[in-house]
Design a protein around this nucleic acid. Structure first.
Length: 768
DNA sequence: CAGTGAGCGAGCTTCCGCTTGACTT
């Protein structure tokens, strides 16, 4: 009857389920769902005067879990704390001891890095106590982040209109995007001429085999390129040299959160949030290991299983078991790499996204355990008789594909690598003739804008953020309105081309697109102003190396070499002084910039941050005069907008004349151009131009919209409308929408039914 | 949903990391 009851607490319910299977009947395994306590939000949750004493509370959404944990702990004779073996995991265990009132004799701390029977049994047989130094390092981290976030954000509210938040991680992510944008704005493309030739082997003339090669030098000036082509017209060509070098390609290590997000973006087009939510489902379904990890480590069992499968599928020579070392900064390595739970399962059940992501994980894991690829690089130098600039042909041949059989990592750089895979057989000294030699103008391009995925990569390199926060941080800076993911159509520019063929040079001009962008991160005005304010006043904290530097301090605390309160004291002294002085002295920042003067009136034209967003202001306010304002459009920046564009903004709203006794106005709104009439808005179609739209066309748009609205209407009782919407029928009343309960025929609703639905739903409905 | 734009004052917001649901007007 009185058998021993063991309670094991882990962080995730999916993990609990798996572990319970290994431990048998005497063990009950439950989950804490991550942290169970956090700092109170009142008075920033820290008693700064009193050794930074944290005030911990149990958040509302954790109360249920904590009660459950308390109940189970009371029933157990032994509690095993099995949270992750890193700073955060140790802190979770410590909070559990505090909150559940666990006596030492009944509490054991265990850790395991992989979820296998052996690893878990091994962990249970070697318990330890809580490592309080590690807990202190976590507390220092937590308190520092709260101090930075909760003392700097309020400064922003006061000093920068529309600013909302600052933090150790989000503000550096923002800075990366702003500084990249400035690099791009300042970038001046330079063009040069790249010369490529197609050559025919004299002896092989009938076969028509062609060697493509590029001149070893680029020409900055068009005249020089032309001169070179003229030389080529009279030159003879021969194979001057051939070198063949063996090379090796190595597989990429298994996935971490960061590399999974990058590859899923590049290969599958998933956003980082999308990748995480699909991975979460795979994890909960027991199909992959944990998806928030910075470790490239694989369990021995996984390595062995993979080896067996690779040998069977591809042959013994394709197998090469290996363990990868984790290289990223600040890695805590509490988990394995992201891999299939069962390598034997090559395909899984699930939706398309799940299947695709699983397939990617399977291939990456398999490839990491496969042989290197063997390649052969051939360099052929083609001599030009009357010039010392030769042509070079490069070829790369895969001699043994190895891991490339299943997986090849994508790269962020777009564009070809210039390698041919096939080259006709040639010998040194052979004579060649040109078929065609082309000089094409090529422009240099600036560093690329960040995608969500490449930003995560950069953050990981800098050691800011953790696997669990990459996706949320990227959402945060977008939700705050600091940056936006946008497309840009790009601009056309002319490119000069000269082609030498049959002894004659023909020049032509083509156009190419530059600056085309798809789903890139662009800073918005408010993001730029916030960033400049933060960098101006808190350059040391929003420095790219700040996190790396304090991580060294946290490590010292974890090693017991430093007191966490001492560390915070050293940080807080100068920090708080800076907070106070900034609050007192810093100027309000609106990013104001003088563009010039309006030609007609001679009044000054400014771009600046207004109360509701970025605006152009013409003229200054005085007793008898009001300045004129116009909002900037999407894609325009305070920093770069020019006079012509600025004045264009004042051409709208434009009066179109009267219709049914009231003025029609055409304007530009958040959702594009519109016609306003009797306080209703009518969107222009894409073929309509707000600057030239006619009275007649505007009336047409109004009538069309009225007609469409009539079709939407099912019923009407005074100002209660029953309408057909995108998500099915709904009730519209006083600018609020109400869902009609499932199974109700909207035709059958009476006025009283509608009122009931409205009353029932208006209590819970919160306005945003 | 889209017209605003000076200044004042009240009451509000905010961080990072650990984990999943509950939401789908």
């Amino acid at each position: 009857m009185d058998m021993s009851v063991n309670l094991v607490i882990v962080e995730s319910p999916a993990k609990a389920k798996t572990i319970e299977k290994f431990l048998g009947k005497d063990f009950k395994v439950i989950s804490s769902f991550g942290h169970i306590r956090d700092l109170s939000k009142k008075n920033i949750g820290i008693d700064v005067e009193n050794g930074f004493k944290p005030e911990y509370i149990i958040p509302d959404d954790k109360k249920k879990v904590v009660n459950e944990l308390k109940k189970e702990a009371a029933r157990a004779s032994q509690v095993w704390l099995a949270s992750d073996e890193d700073r955060e995991g140790e802190a979770i265990a410590w909070h559990l001891v505090q909150v559940l009132n666990l006596p030492p004799e009944k509490t054991k701390r265990i850790v395991f890095h992989e979820i296998t029977k052996e690893a878990i049994e091994q962990a249970v047989s070697s318990p330890r106590g809580i490592n309080i130094s590690l807990v202190d390092a976590q507390q220092a981290r937590r308190v520092l982040d709260r101090l930075v976030g909760f003392q700097i954000s309020p400064i922003l509210w006061k000093k920068v209109p529309l600013a909302l938040s600052a933090g150790r991680v989000q503000s550096v992510a923002l800075r990366l995007i702003v500084e990249r944008e400035r690099e791009i704005i300042a970038f001046k493309p330079v063009s040069s001429f790249r010369i490529t030739g197609e050559f025919i082997i004299d002896a092989d003339r009938e076969k028509g085999a062609i060697i493509k090669a590029e001149a070893s030098k680029k020409f900055n000036r068009e005249e020089d390129a032309k001169e070179f082509l003229q030389l080529c017209a009279d030159a003879s060509f021969n194979i001057a040299d051939i070198t063949v070098k063996p090379g090796t390609r190595f597989p990429a290590p298994p996935f971490t959160t960061s590399t999974l997000q990058q590859e899923a973006y590049r290969k599958l087009g998933f956003s980082v949030a999308q990748t995480m939510s699909v991975a979460q489902r795979l994890y909960e379904g027991g199909m992959i290991t944990y998806m928030r990890t910075d470790s490239t480590n694989l369990s021995q069992l996984a390595i062995n299983t993979a080896a067996g499968i690779i040998k069977k599928e591809y042959g013994d020579n394709y197998s090469r078991p290996r363990q990868y070392r984790t290289r990223s900064k600040g890695a805590q390595e509490a988990h394995e790499a992201i891999r299939p739970a069962y390598m034997a399962k090559k395909i899984i059940q699930g939706n398309q996204q799940e299947k695709k992501l699983y397939d990617l994980i399977w291939k990456r894991t398999a490839a990491s355990q496969m042989s290197d690829a063997k390649i052969e690089k051939t360099n052929i130098t083609i001599g030009v008789s009357n010039s010392d600039t030769p042509f070079i042909a490069q070829a790369e041949v895969i001699k043994f594909d190895g891991f490339l059989k299943v997986y090849r990592e994508s790269s962020d750089a777009n564009g070809e690598n210039g390698y041919e895979t096939v080259i006709p057989p040639v010998k040194k000294g052979m004579n060649l003739e040109y078929d065609k030699i082309t000089a094409q103008e090529k422009y240099t391009s600036p560093a690329p804008r960040y995608t969500e995925a490449s930003l995560v990569k950069k953050m990981e390199e800098l050691g800011i953020g953790r696997p669990s926060t990459y996706a949320p941080v990227i959402s945060t800076i977008q939700n705050r309105g600091y940056v936006a993911r946008e497309d840009r159509p790009g601009e056309s520019r002319p490119v000069n081309i000269m082609i030498l063929s049959g002894g004659r040079i023909k020049a032509s001009v083509k156009t190419e697109k530059s600056g085309f962008e798809k789903s890139k991160l662009f800073p918005k005005d408010i993001g730029i102003i916030v960033n400049d304010f933060l960098v101006e006043h808190f350059s040391n904290i929003f420095d790219y190396h700040f996190t790396a530097n304090i991580e060294v301090q946290f490590d010292k605390i974890a090693e017991g070499e430093k007191e966490w309160v001492t560390m915070l004291d050293e940080f807080y002294g100068p920090f708080h002084k800076k907070v106070s002085s900034t609050l007192k002295e810093a100027e309000r920042k609106t990013g104001a910039r003088v563009i010039g003067t309006e030609p007609d009136t001679g009044e000054p034209v400014y771009a600046k941050m207004g109360r509701y967003g970025p605006v152009i202001q013409i003229g200054d306010a005085s007793e008898d005069k009001k300045p004129r304002f116009a909002s900037l459009r999407k894609g325009q920046l305070i920093e770069t907008i020019g006079m012509e564009e600025a004045l264009e903004l004042f051409k709208l709203p434009r009066k179109l004349g009267e219709h049914e006794g009231e003025e029609m106005l055409v304007g530009m709104g958040r959702f594009g151009p519109y016609v306003k009439h009797k306080n209703n808005f009518y969107s222009l179609k894409s073929k309509d131009d707000p600057y030239s739209i006619t009275h007649e066309r505007a009336v047409e748009l109004i009538e069309e919209k009225k007609e469409a609205d009539k079709k939407k209407e099912i019923k009407r009782f005074g100002d209660i409308l029953v309408l057909n919407g995108r998500y099915g029928p709904y009730i519209s009343y006083e600018k609020q929408n109400y869902k009609i309960p499932r199974g109700t025929d909207p035709e059958s609703l009476s006025q009283e039914d509608c009122m009931n639905i409205i009353k029932k739903n208006s209590g819970s409905g919160k306005k945003k």
